[in-house]
């Protein structure tokens, strides 16, 4: 018996009016796989994450998570658009870290990390705090647990955001340009936490990134998006070392030139 892919985009399209952002996307991500998505801006790469997190609806196709439809549900043997209860059940498996952190500014680091475990998972406060303390320790911020986001640097805020997402024990973690809003000297500490997460936790990871070095070293597979389609994909060594597609070559050339 073959294992179900963790995530499967089945002919998924996304349009804004006349503009097609994603055009019939087919993408499978295996359990535990680390996939990086690269590409020029406007290529639809962030939309892939946002659709999977259900921040965007889709126009065509179906997204599957561990063999269950996310965007749809089965009723009388047919797939119909999912209702909120179904979406909430399936998206509990997914967590996301944002480019702009999106911490709750009126809550401390600790409060940010226990809010969802208590209100969504129904955990006891003490248990949620113990779990959050472990996670804040993992991201190296134990001593900042009572600080508010505005009292933390960008890198520290992003590490809290990672701990907050982990507190919900997702199976799939999405990273949307998580270092793009950071000062260059703070990028390293966040990438180090993501590396650690990949090593120590059984997580499937999907990241949109401009950090080519990190994508190369960290990912099992890299997808190059262009104009709403996967233009080329493969192991990082192949894609970065010997890109087959002309557009991939142009993009990598431009990015490496700049970086």
């Amino acid at each position: 018996m073959t294992e179900q892919p963790m995530v499967r985009f089945d002919n998924v399209s996304k349009r804004y009016g006349a503009l097609t952002v994603l055009d019939g996307l087919n993408l499978e991500i295996a359990h535990g796989e680390k996939v990086s998505i690269i590409g020029p801006s406007g290529s639809g790469k962030t939309t892939v994450l946002r659709m999977l997190m259900t921040l965007e609806t889709i126009n065509d196709g179906v997204i599957w998570v561990e063999g269950q439809p996310l965007t749809h549900m089965e009723r009388n043997g047919k797939l119909v658009p999912a209702d909120l209860a179904h979406i909430r059940k399936i998206r509990a498996k997914i967590g996301m870290v944002f480019q702009s952190f999106n911490l709750f500014p009126h809550m401390t680091a600790m409060q940010n990390c226990i809010e969802a475990p208590i209100t969504v998972l129904g955990m006891k406060r003490a248990d949620a705090e113990a779990r959050a303390a472990d996670l804040l320790d993992m991201v190296g911020l134990s001593e900042k647990k009572d600080h508010y986001p505005s009292q933390l640097s960008g890198g520290q805020q992003q590490r809290v955001a990672i701990a907050r997402a982990c507190a919900m024990r997702p199976k799939i973690m999405l990273f949307d340009e998580v270092t793009s809003a950071l000062d260059p000297e703070l990028v390293g500490e966040v990438l180090e936490v993501i590396r650690k997460l990949g090593r120590e936790h059984d997580l499937t990871m999907l990241m949109v990134t401009h950090q080519m070095g990190f994508a190369k070293e960290f990912s099992d597979r890299v997808c190059f998006f262009h104009a709403g389609k996967i233009c080329e994909q493969g192991p990082p060594n192949e894609l970065f070392g010997a890109p087959k597609n002309e557009r991939t070559r142009q993009f990598l050339h431009a990015v490496l030139e700049a970086g």
Binding site: M53, T54, L55, R88, R91, A92, I94, G95, M96, F98, S100, F101, N102, L103, F104, P105, H106, E115, A116, T119, V120, R164, A165, M168
Partner: peptide, 27 residues
């Protein structure tokens, strides 16, 4: 309220009631 606050609430799977009560209204 910044759109990111709503999106973070969705990503954490908060119910809309909890989102209003704990995230949106206090801010």
């Amino acid at each position: 309220i910044h759109r990111g606050q709503w999106e973070a609430s969705i990503a954490l799977n908060l119910s809309s009631w909890t989102t209003f009560r704990d995230i949106i209204i206090p801010q």
